[in-house]
Nucleic acid binder design. Structure first.
Lengths: 206, 206, 206, 206
DNA sequence: TATGAATGAGGGTTCATTCAT
DNA sequence: GATGAATGAACCCTCATTCAT
């Protein structure tokens, strides 16, 4: 009903601002990116940014939320795809890692932003970050927990710790891939990740 | 080498400025931290910063170099310690991971700065970052290469990729530990890392 | 006279805008009051303001004219009432003071605006202010002149000066009353004013 | 001791900013006067304003305080001068009125600012205004109270009301004089004020 | 008649940097 | 070696105004 009233998501203007801001901030950092630049790249006037968002920070927070929610959705999808295909939980995790790499390849800015800000404190968007972190971790934790219940994952595995490790490693690896070895095929990077995964969860493939 | 002209490298004043800048920038980011704040926290006047460094960026770069060189030294020491003790290469890697965690616990700011900036582009200190990255990776690569040569590490392991993975995972895990689960004993976190390590390198402990 | 072209002078919408603008500008000043605020308080959209007035300044000028003309009319009425009742000129002035106080109580915004702007220079609505000032002074001057002619007012009284004094004192006293001693009955404030009046004009009540 | 630490009053820079800001704001109003203009007129850079004051509002408040305190001091002096000369309380009030006119002639900006803001609400400097108002009123009230005690002032006079009336009338009259009849000698305006005064307080000159 | 998304010039504020002491 | 008053370029944000609907 009043879906459009508060946050008219999908407004072309807002989406274009997300895209522009994402790229620029990922490259230069939040403070070094000016609102003017963002507006210019989005093809709108500076004032338009402020017509659509309270301020620069809010734009950033909504962008973060928007981007990470997409990532979470794709991870969830990958996990579900595995379930549907009758594959095991470890296989599901492998698919999630691949989905993560694909996402990072397509939307590096989001991953970049997330990693760069994740462990800072005293930042205005702390709360937002915490929210999206929880959402991402939840996806991994769910699969790990299922794997544990079904005996596919080692009993000693510490679910929260392993989830955080997998997520962190996935993101950092993806960034490293893009930044320093972009010529490598996804396959190689995925293999390396899967190796780590096997070590981490014990991986008694079914 | 290109030792700063005017003053000796590490006066007490400079060290206090490193400490102040490190903490503040790790928390708030480079741009959001003002020279005034840094000076205040170091207990000197603003002008003093400019007496000791060319500009804010140079302060940051020297701080980065200073901090990461320390980390590299400790990693190297850990590896050497293993050699001296007659332990294998995988054991050396395990000690390095422990050393990394200890360092992060003691100097979180350095790790924070490094991770936050590592995958950005278009930043003024790109060159410095690249240098220190190389230095850190070199430590891991050396040990991995030895392990490979000695047959202790799986033949299929891709040394550069594995080194980057290990370093990235180590740092990210350390940050996550400090930020979100600081009550955990180092032992737990180290175990989880070792698990990943075994997966990664195959780990046929001698 | 120079009736605005497009629309009839006093539509309900315009009157609501006057009321909204009057209150807000009296409280916050012209520049600190936004067109958006005015529109919101009047319950219309921002564009509507521009449909009804050329710009923000014109709205303010018309509001000023509208309000002060009302005050002038009430002062005139009070004077005439005295004449009809066969009272003297000093009594007429006393009635005018009462009428002024009543008006200020009812429409404080108008008085507020007038006083705050009256002695500024370099303001866009200078001309308008001068007009309405003349209109107000004329009412006092007429009565004073009659009183002088009829010997009821001291011969040494300087009519323009006395008129300006009476008007200024009336308005300032009214504002002070509302702002700082609103609990006082009108009667008290009126008495104090009448005292000043007697001093000013000599007041040989008939 | 640390007089100079917090508020280094008398710093030429600050005084020049007071003078510049006073004139400009009196003419154009607070919002219509830019910090740039103020700095330019004071012969300093824009940043200097912010080095000396927190923000534009604080500059204005300190200016207000500074200016009105001067006025209060001169009023007090005038009253004391009368006491020393052995004149009565009504004579003291007359001297105060003259002192007020002289001050307004010399520093019209201060009076202007005070009157324009005095009866607004919802302004950031409300508290400051209230303070200085109290200070000014106190001077009048003291003399009136003495006059009452000594029988020189009518028993029915309401001291707070009369003080507010006298102050308001003085200031408004001074502004009117400067704005609309600057050719008039001070003597004329003073006479008119004294008339009002006599009416107000009864004035049984000794 | 009325609306509200979009604009862009303008202004307050910040802060790295300089320099005279 | 160190200081801190002063600077001014750069930037965030506001808001009067426009215009297509």
């Amino acid at each position: 009903m009043d879906t459009s009233s508060r946050t008219p998501r999908r407004t072309p203007t807002r989406l274009r601002l997300y895209a522009a801001a994402g790229t620029l901030i990922a490259e230069q950092g939040f403070s070094s990116t000016t609102v003017e630049e963002i507006a210019a790249r989005a093809g709108v006037a500076k004032g338009t940014v402020y017509y659509n968002f309270t301020d620069k920070t809010e734009l950033f927070e909504e962008l973060l939320r928007y981007g990470v929610e997409q990532l979470a959705a794709e991870l969830r999808q990958a996990a579900e795809g595995a379930t549907v295909a009758g594959a095991g939980r470890v296989a599901a995790l492998e698919r999630m890692l691949r989905a993560g790499l694909l996402f990072a390849d397509r939307s590096p800015a989001v991953v970049q932003l997330y990693v760069a800000e994740q462990w800072r404190t005293n930042r205005p968007w702390q709360a937002t970050l915490h929210d999206v972190r929880r959402e991402l971790l939840a996806v991994f934790e769910a699969v790990l927990r299922d794997g544990l219940a079904e005996g596919e994952v080692d009993q000693e595995v510490d679910v929260p710790l392993a989830a955080a490790n997998l997520l962190g490693t996935l993101l950092v690896t993806a960034l490293d891939w893009r930044a320093f070895q972009p010529e490598r095929p996804l396959r190689d990077v995925h293999s390396a990740l899967v190796r780590l995964l096997r070590g981490s969860v014990g991986g008694h493939a079914r």
